[in-house]
Structure formats: structure tokens, C-alpha cells
Amino acid sequence: AEKTGIVNVSSSLNAREGASTSSKVIGSLSGNTKVTIVGEEGAFYKIEYKGSHGYVAKEYIKDIKDE
């Protein structure tokens, strides 16, 4: 099942092309942005936001229960 997560940073969080800190940054998400978690790979979540996919470090995403 898809989960919703909240970007848990004070400034912004980089979204990357792949599940690695050396992957190209494809965008950034500001704190408290809601994202859909579609998968996980190592220390990263694969997320969907406004129709695009990217990878973000798990430690900066807070899971919330689907309402």
C-alpha cells in the first residue's frame, strides 16, 4: 500500500534521480511537503510528488498514517 510521508526538514530536501547521494539532484522539496512513498531502496524512499518520481533520504521523511 502507498504511504504518505512528510518532508521533515527546516529548509529543503533534495530529491534525486537514484537511491544514492551521488545521484543527480532533480528537485527540492520544502519542509512539511506531503509526498507519496511508493517504494524503498536502502536508505532511500522512492517518492511521487506532483506526478514525478524521485529518491529522498529516509531519515528526512516522517511517515504519517493514511487518513
Rank of each mutant, 00 (worst) to 15 (best):
A1Y: 14
A1R: 13
A1T: 13
A1G: 14
A1Q: 13
A1D: 09
A1P: 11
A1W: 15
E2W: 15
E2V: 15
E2F: 15
E2L: 15
K3N: 05
K3G: 05
K3E: 02
K3M: 10
K3Y: 10
K3A: 05
T4C: 13
T4I: 12
T4M: 08
T4G: 05
T4L: 08
G5P: 02
G5V: 03
G5E: 02
G5Q: 03
G5L: 04
G5R: 01
G5T: 03
G5M: 04
G5C: 08
G5W: 05
G5Y: 06
G5N: 02
I6E: 04
I6Q: 06
I6K: 05
I6M: 07
V7H: 03
V7E: 02
V7R: 01
V7S: 03
N8G: 09
N8H: 10
N8R: 09
N8A: 12
V9C: 15
V9D: 06
V9Q: 07
V9G: 10
S10K: 12
S10T: 12
S10G: 11
S10A: 13
S10P: 12
S10I: 12
S10E: 13
S11W: 09
S11Y: 08
S11F: 10
S11P: 10
S11T: 14
S11V: 10
S12W: 13
S12H: 13
S12E: 12
S12G: 12
S12K: 09
L13D: 02
L13Y: 04
L13V: 15
L13E: 03
L13P: 08
L13T: 11
L13S: 03
L13I: 15
L13C: 15
L13H: 03
N14K: 11
N14E: 15
N14W: 14
N14A: 14
N14R: 08
N14F: 14
N14D: 15
A15M: 15
A15Y: 15
A15S: 04
A15V: 15
A15W: 15
A15N: 03
A15P: 05
R16H: 15
R16P: 04
R16D: 03
R16F: 15
R16W: 15
R16S: 07
R16G: 04
R16C: 10
E17D: 10
E17M: 05
E17K: 06
E17P: 06
E17F: 04
E17T: 04
E17W: 05
E17N: 06
E17V: 06
G18T: 13
G18Y: 14
G18W: 12
G18L: 10
G18I: 06
A19Q: 03
A19L: 06
A19I: 06
A19M: 05
A19H: 04
A19F: 05
S20E: 07
S20A: 07
S20F: 07
S20W: 06
S20G: 05
S20T: 10
T21W: 14
T21N: 14
T21F: 15
T21C: 15
T21P: 13
T21S: 11
T21D: 13
S22C: 13
S22N: 12
S22V: 08
S22F: 09
S22P: 03
S22T: 12
S23M: 06
S23D: 05
S23P: 01
S23G: 04
S23V: 03
K24M: 09
K24S: 09
K24N: 08
K24Y: 05
K24T: 07
V25L: 06
V25N: 04
V25H: 03
V25C: 07
V25F: 06
V25Y: 05
V25G: 04
V25I: 14
I26H: 02
I26P: 00
I26D: 02
I26F: 02
I26C: 09
I26L: 10
G27P: 01
G27L: 11
G27S: 04
G27I: 11
G27Y: 14
G27C: 09
G27N: 03
S28F: 10
S28M: 11
S28V: 14
S28A: 11
S28T: 14
S28G: 05
S28P: 07
S28R: 11
S28H: 11
L29A: 00
L29R: 00
L29N: 01
L29F: 05
L29W: 02
L29K: 02
L29C: 05
L29T: 02
L29M: 05
L29H: 02
S30N: 10
S30D: 12
S30H: 11
S30E: 14
S30G: 08
S30A: 14
S30F: 09
G31V: 10
G31P: 15
G31W: 10
G31L: 09
G31C: 13
N32V: 05
N32E: 07
N32S: 08
N32D: 09
N32Y: 11
T33R: 05
T33P: 01
T33K: 04
T33C: 09
T33D: 09
K34C: 10
K34Q: 10
K34S: 07
K34T: 10
K34A: 07
K34W: 09
K34Y: 09
V35F: 02
V35N: 01
V35S: 00
T36E: 05
T36W: 13
T36K: 12
T36M: 10
I37H: 00
I37F: 01
I37N: 00
I37G: 00
I37D: 02
I37Y: 00
I37A: 01
I37W: 00
V38F: 05
V38G: 00
V38A: 03
V38Q: 04
V38W: 05
G39N: 02
G39E: 04
G39R: 01
G39C: 07
G39K: 02
G39L: 03
G39F: 02
G39Y: 04
G39V: 02
G39M: 04
E40F: 04
E40G: 02
E40T: 06
E40L: 04
E40N: 03
E40W: 04
E40C: 08
E40S: 07
E40P: 00
E41A: 07
E41L: 07
E41S: 08
E41C: 13
G42H: 03
G42Q: 03
G42L: 03
G42T: 00
G42R: 02
G42S: 05
G42A: 04
A43M: 11
A43F: 08
A43Y: 07
A43P: 10
A43E: 13
A43C: 11
A43T: 08
A43H: 08
A43W: 06
F44R: 00
F44A: 00
F44W: 14
F44Q: 02
Y45S: 01
Y45W: 13
Y45A: 02
Y45D: 01
Y45E: 02
Y45F: 09
K46A: 04
K46C: 09
K46S: 02
K46V: 09
K46Q: 06
K46Y: 08
I47V: 06
I47R: 00
I47F: 02
I47G: 00
I47C: 04
E48P: 02
E48L: 14
E48S: 08
E48V: 14
E48Y: 12
E48T: 10
Y49P: 00
Y49S: 00
Y49C: 07
Y49A: 00
Y49Q: 00
Y49W: 11
Y49G: 00
K50Y: 11
K50W: 07
G51I: 01
G51M: 06
G51Y: 04
G51T: 05
G51K: 04
G51A: 05
S52D: 07
S52A: 12
S52Q: 11
S52L: 14
S52M: 14
S52P: 00
S52T: 14
S52R: 11
H53G: 04
H53E: 06
H53L: 10
H53V: 13
H53T: 11
H53K: 05
H53N: 05
H53Y: 15
H53M: 09
H53Q: 06
G54A: 15
G54L: 07
G54Y: 09
G54S: 06
G54R: 03
G54V: 14
Y55K: 00
Y55I: 02
Y55H: 01
Y55V: 00
Y55P: 00
Y55G: 00
Y55R: 00
V56H: 01
V56I: 08
V56W: 00
V56L: 04
A57L: 15
A57V: 07
A57S: 10
A57K: 11
A57R: 11
K58W: 02
K58S: 03
K58I: 05
K58Q: 04
K58C: 05
K58R: 06
K58N: 00
K58G: 03
E59L: 08
E59I: 12
E59M: 12
E59H: 08
E59P: 03
E59C: 12
Y60F: 14
Y60H: 11
Y60S: 08
Y60W: 08
I61N: 00
I61S: 00
I61P: 02
I61G: 01
I61L: 07
I61W: 02
I61D: 00
I61A: 02
I61M: 03
K62E: 09
K62I: 14
K62T: 14
K62C: 12
K62P: 01
K62M: 12
K62N: 10
K62A: 11
D63L: 15
D63G: 08
D63P: 10
D63C: 15
D63H: 09
D63W: 11
D63F: 14
D63E: 13
I64M: 07
I64H: 05
I64S: 06
I64R: 02
K65M: 11
K65G: 09
K65D: 09
K65W: 11
K65S: 13
D66R: 08
D66Y: 14
D66C: 14
D66M: 13
D66I: 14
D66W: 15
E67L: 14
E67A: 13
E67G: 12
E67N: 13
E67Y: 12
